[in-house]
Design a protein around this nucleic acid. Sequence first.
DNA 1: GATCTTCTAAACTGATCAGTCTATTAAAAA
DNA 2: TTTTTAATAGACTGATCAGTTTAGAAGATC
Lengths: 187, 187
Amino acid sequence: MVRSVFEKPDAIALVAEVFRELGYEGASMSEITARTKLSKGSLYHFFPGGKEEMAAEIMANIDAWFVTEMFRPLEEEEPRIAIARMWETTDSYFRSGRRICLIGAFALDETRDRFSDAIRGYFHHWIEALAGALVKAGVPGSGAKTLAEEAVVGIQGALTLARALGDDAIFGRTLKRLRQRLDSAME
Amino acid sequence: MVRSVFEKPDAIALVAEVFRELGYEGASMSEITARTKLSKGSLYHFFPGGKEEMAAEIMANIDAWFVTEMFRPLEEEEPRIAIARMWETTDSYFRSGRRICLIGAFALDETRDRFSDAIRGYFHHWIEALAGALVKAGVPGSGAKTLAEEAVVGIQGALTLARALGDDAIFGRTLKRLRQRLDSAME
DNA sequence: GATCTTCTAAACTGATCAGTCTATTAAAAA
DNA sequence: TTTTTAATAGACTGATCAGTTTAGAAGATC
């Protein structure tokens, strides 16, 4: 039969979107095959461990992306520039509130128990990287941690409410408000 | 056989906890019967419509509780007192961050599509009731809406991060910070 | 105490689940 | 060109799913 053009990284991205839409338990193999157009043969070829391996690889993939695009810049580059870019990266990654945070969603039900280290690591890394950048930008240590925590909390809450209210605008408003608060703390 | 002491309100509360732990899709009937100790006979007697009816009744139940304990006081009672009580109610309802918001969790996956009106109504009501109380407490209308939105966003985000980090403390810190921000806006 | 309603238990059903397997194909390597 | 490898399609399996049904017990009503 005709071999598809997809390779593993494509498969990861396709399956990730299904998990994002349906959640871990809601994403049955038949739904995954239907939505990705990948057959069971292909899926189990790429992910012999089934759904659990898919989810683990997806989370590792998301984490690696954030490390490269957001956390490492916050840790290594000019803090004010990296923080400014963080807001843009956040807005574009979450499609201005139309796309949920899969790792945040996994945290809410018992899926969390299977991937607790990855989930904890992702959010911990985000908060620590942002707090570190704030310190380098002149914010006192205690306030930096609080501000970083507030930012990540706000982003997650805004994603929840954007979906709940069916209104993306709340995500943009929240990002703008958080950005102003961090900016004024860096003055 | 021995009739259990439970009646429908008890059944709703028991099943709600299972949905909270496993999510809508993750809560299979066999898990629900195992965790609630209610047989299928009992569950389908109380909820002839199955899981969907359970979830709908649970959400209506949660909504009614919030209306009585939080939204109506915010709308009708002395605003500063009602807002102060809101923080306490929020902390105790969510067990200081150890209990998730079921309606927020339902908002994140496709479960949302089945219950979108109830989900939207719950959060909209919360934000509007809080904004109204802030206005009555002397906060200008535009700022009141923003502050109310910020409070509900923060609560939801803190619930997500408390679970993700396995650390309840972030919920208490977030509640305290939000409370201070609203209090100082009311001065 | 007889009857009726409400509730419970669990066996049962057909559908769907995750995962396996075989056959087949295209592309890469030899 | 031949062989090997990576990928694909989909039938198949046993387990579990949501939901039905039947039988019967507890409590209420008379």
